[in-house]
Computed example of a mutant assay.
Amino acid sequence: MKMFVGVPEVYLHHAFVDFRKSINGLAALVESELELSAMSGAVFVFCNKGRDKLKILYWDRTGFALWYKRLEKDKFKWPTKLHGPTLSLSEQQLHWLLSGFDVIGHRPLSLQSAVL
């Protein structure tokens, strides 16, 4: 099942985030650091320093939603060389990221780590 189908825009927050932050803290980062409206309907993706957790914040017309994913045996392929505080992703790139692929080079997680 594909999540986040038909989202207008996807923004990846470049810097690692303290994952004690929840909806209010992440929305404040969107507004202050990215200078974007957190209530625009866009999807905002954040990663922790260990690169094993993602938080995705979005506004769905009735309130904020926060989606969380944790990898058990590998790390997300988080882009490290960006020329700004954010990277705009396509919907397909978001799905690649959530599936363990490098959104820039399209390299998958190692086969060994994908086996349960």
Score class of each variant (00 low, 15 high):
Glu35His: 13
Trp78Ile: 15
Thr86Ile: 02
Leu57His: 07
Leu34Thr: 01
Gly84Phe: 11
Ala42Asp: 08
Trp67Lys: 06
Cys47Ile: 06
Met39Pro: 00
Ile56Val: 14
Ile23Asp: 04
Lys69Thr: 02
Asp52Ile: 01
Lys73Arg: 15
Ile23Tyr: 05
Val10Asp: 02
Gln93Trp: 10
Arg20Tyr: 04
Pro85Thr: 10
Val17His: 03
Ser40Asp: 04
Met39Asn: 03
Ala38Ser: 15
Lys53Met: 13
Ala15Leu: 14
Leu54Val: 08
Glu33Thr: 09
Ser32Cys: 09
Lys69Met: 04
Leu34Met: 15
Val43Asp: 00
Phe19His: 12
Phe16Val: 10
Lys75Val: 13
Leu82Phe: 11
Trp67Ala: 06
Ser40Arg: 07
Phe16Ala: 14
Leu12Phe: 13
Lys77Thr: 00
Leu34Val: 04
Arg70Pro: 01
Ala42Arg: 07
Tyr58Gly: 04
Val45Tyr: 08
Arg70Ile: 03
Ala27Ser: 14
Trp59Asp: 00
His95Lys: 09
Tyr58Thr: 06
Arg61Gln: 15
Arg61Asp: 12
Arg20Lys: 13
Trp59Arg: 07
Lys81Ala: 12
Tyr68Thr: 10
Asp18Phe: 12
Glu91Met: 11
Arg61Ala: 11
Ala27Thr: 04
Lys77Leu: 12
Leu34Gly: 06
Ala38Pro: 08
His14Leu: 08
Val45Thr: 08
Lys69Ser: 02
Val45Leu: 11
Asp74Thr: 14
Arg51Met: 07
Phe101Pro: 01
Arg51Val: 01
Phe101Gly: 04
Tyr11Ala: 01
Leu71Asn: 06
Phe19Arg: 04
Gly84Thr: 08
Pro85Gln: 13
Met39Gly: 00
Val43Gly: 03
